[in-house]
């Protein structure tokens, strides 16, 4: 197990280098003068330009610039954005919000998705099953901004249950509606995945054994069949969580959430290269770590998978 983790961590290094090099190259190889527009309507003074270019190694060839960036990143310094704020400071603040939102979205999709999946799985072909299948298809087909706007209108404006947008440091209550909207697409997937696996496992021989052992149907289904059905579902939810930690640009913009997705969007829009590269580097590392955790969890859920 320890060896497996070390091997996986070592495998991350080339992936991180590869992805960050690509993003670094794409951002800084774009034509344009990074100092343009920094000094208002007039061109910047030559001394400032020289200082800026030296600070950002703009006169070095690309591979050298990248190597210097990696060396600096390795010390935990992602540089400062064009407003002079440390990118790590920005990311910290943004990640608190994005993390909260992602966790809540995952909680919503797990609770509602699995419950719906179980209900339709054990009542296969009955009314509730068709209801779940049709409603999940419906949810999958609607774009997220439509669901977001509908929720804002009904839950926020008309019935006044939740705030329409959230504040800079959002509370759990404020984030509930965005989390629901963000999780809604995955609710549908989780419900269908749970249903399919449960239906399949209910036919499994070991469920027949459980019944033959004299266990109640509740235990045979709710423990023996469900425990096996949850393996792919939890794996999916884990990867989904990794994806959500990368931010949700559309949902963040609808509800005015100061998350990581909006930060990257704004940085690209402002051509703030240092911020873009820094944020993407952080995203890549977080995503890889979450993936590693999911793989480890998979081994815990299914004893047949061994990480030796």
């Amino acid at each position: 197990m320890g060896k497996y983790i070390i091997r996986r961590l070592l495998q991350m290094i080339p992936v991180i280098i590869g992805t960050t090099f690509l993003i670094f190259y794409m951002v800084f190889a774009l034509p344009g003068d990074p100092t343009a527009g920094k000094c208002g309507e007039r061109p910047c003074p030559a001394a400032y330009v020289a200082k800026y270019r030296a600070e950002h190694n703009l006169d070095d060839p690309m591979p050298i610039r990248y190597a210097k960036y990696v060396a600096k990143t390795a010390t935990g310094d992602l540089g400062t954005n064009r407003y002079g704020v440390k990118v790590t400071e920005d990311l910290k603040k943004r990640y608190v919000v994005t993390g909260k939102l992602a966790l809540m979205a995952v909680a919503v999709e797990v609770v509602i998705g699995i419950a719906a999946g179980i209900l339709s799985g054990i009542r296969k072909g009955r009314f509730i099953d068709n209801l779940v299948l049709v409603s999940t298809l419906f949810v999958i087909s609607i774009p997220v901004f439509v669901i977001g706007a509908l929720c804002q209108y009904f839950l926020g404006v008309k019935w006044g249950l939740f705030p329409v947008t959230v504040s800079a440091k959002p509370t759990l209550y404020e984030l509930f509606m965005p989390a629901f909207v963000l999780g809604s697409l995955s609710i549908a997937y989780v419900a269908r995945l749970t249903r399919t696996n449960l239906v399949e496992n209910l036919r499994a021989d070991y469920v027949r054994t459980a019944i033959a052992k004299g266990l109640s149907r509740k235990r045979a289904v709710g423990l023996h069949a469900l425990r096996n059905s949850m393996i792919p579902v939890i794996t999916f939810v884990g990867f989904d969580f990794g994806g959500l930690l990368g931010g949700a640009i559309v949902t963040e913009r609808i509800f005015n959430i100061q998350g990581i997705g909006g930060y990257i969007f704004r940085s690209i829009y402002n051509r703030d290269g240092v911020a873009v590269v820094g944020a993407v580097t952080a995203l890549v590392i977080v995503y890889l770590l979450v993936n590693l955790l999911v793989d480890l969890l998979y081994g815990v859920l299914d004893p047949r998978i061994s990480h030796d």
Partner: peptide
Amino acid sequence: RGAEIAMIFQDALSSLNPV
């Protein structure tokens, strides 16, 4: 079931719960 009348099946690998 199980206590008075018990049963064993053909394929023990699939009849035992893998997890």
